[in-house]
Simulated scan of single mutants.
Amino acid sequence: MNERKVLIVDDEFAIRDMLRMALEIAEFRCIEAENIQDAHALIVDERPDIVLLDWMLPGGSGLELLRRLKRNDATRELPVIMLTAKTAEDNVIQGLDVGADDYITKPFAPRELIARIKALLRRAAGGDQQDRIQVAELVLDGESRRIFLGEDPVDMGPTEFNLLQFFMSHPERAYTRNQLLDHVWGANVYVEERTVDVHIRRLRKALQTPLKDYSDLIQTVRGTGYRFSARGVPSR
């Protein structure tokens, strides 16, 4: 089996060492950098499969490197997970706006990070669209494009399906309307932001049945946009 190569960019040796050991146990190959200059050189020379990028770095922030990567055609599609001690939602949104594929806040469990890495690599390879995703009694079958609540099929339009598939693949993360437009409708498609609100209302309505109400899975984040949260699963 070919090892997937992970670039760890963090100025703290203890964190790099902890990540390297956990990733090597999970059969990843690791390369390391402690500043954005070395990181960029390694990206060009070593071509990693994914980058774990700390927000705060000497000689420039991780956000600065992320912007540089997303401006370059050769590195634009390189998956990037931001590692940050910044928990304020506006900082998280800023990283996602620039182009980060995911983020995780310190301190974090290595097992959770590895799960995020594997999920992101599957998405980058196009594997997410065929996944069967389940949250409690809500089941999304990407291959047949069908939704079930328990044993009952749920009727919804193709845009609502795509929106739910994106949300279920990216739980517990807040997204702005613009980000949802880019991910679900496509970056090159012009659609007004309020269109997102219309489809959110339709999606919530579709997730309400006479016996089950899963509409609270789609949460409004004041001042930001929306998130999908399993904490909205109704109690039995």
Rank of each mutant, 00 (worst) to 15 (best):
D49M: 01
G127C: 03
L78Q: 09
Q37P: 00
P107R: 15
I15T: 15
E160V: 06
M56Y: 03
A88Y: 12
E27V: 10
A14E: 12
I8N: 09
R177L: 07
G150L: 06
V196D: 11
R194P: 00
G59P: 06
Y214W: 14
V135D: 08
V139H: 08
A136H: 14
D38Y: 01
K106I: 04
P110H: 08
D97Q: 14
L217K: 03
E12I: 07
K118T: 04
Y190E: 15
Q94N: 12
Y103F: 05
S235P: 03
Q94S: 06
V191H: 15
T176S: 14
I50T: 08
D73L: 13
R227L: 13
N188A: 11
V196M: 07
N72H: 10
W55D: 01
T105W: 10
Q37R: 15
G232I: 01
Q129A: 03
Y103G: 02
R76I: 03
M168V: 09
L52C: 14
R20D: 12
R146N: 10
E160F: 08
V196H: 09
R132E: 14
E3W: 01
A85Q: 14
Q94A: 14
R202E: 13
P158H: 00
L120M: 11
N188S: 12
L65I: 13
I93K: 03
D155L: 09
Y103E: 03
Y214D: 13
K86H: 13
A41D: 13
G186F: 00
I93W: 02
K86R: 15
H170E: 10
G60F: 05
T176L: 02
R67L: 07
V98G: 07
I133Q: 04
N2W: 01
P110V: 11
G127N: 07
D155M: 08
M156W: 04
E160A: 14
P210L: 09
Y214R: 11
D49P: 11
R68I: 00
L69R: 08
E151L: 12
L19G: 11
M56N: 11
D17I: 00
L164C: 08
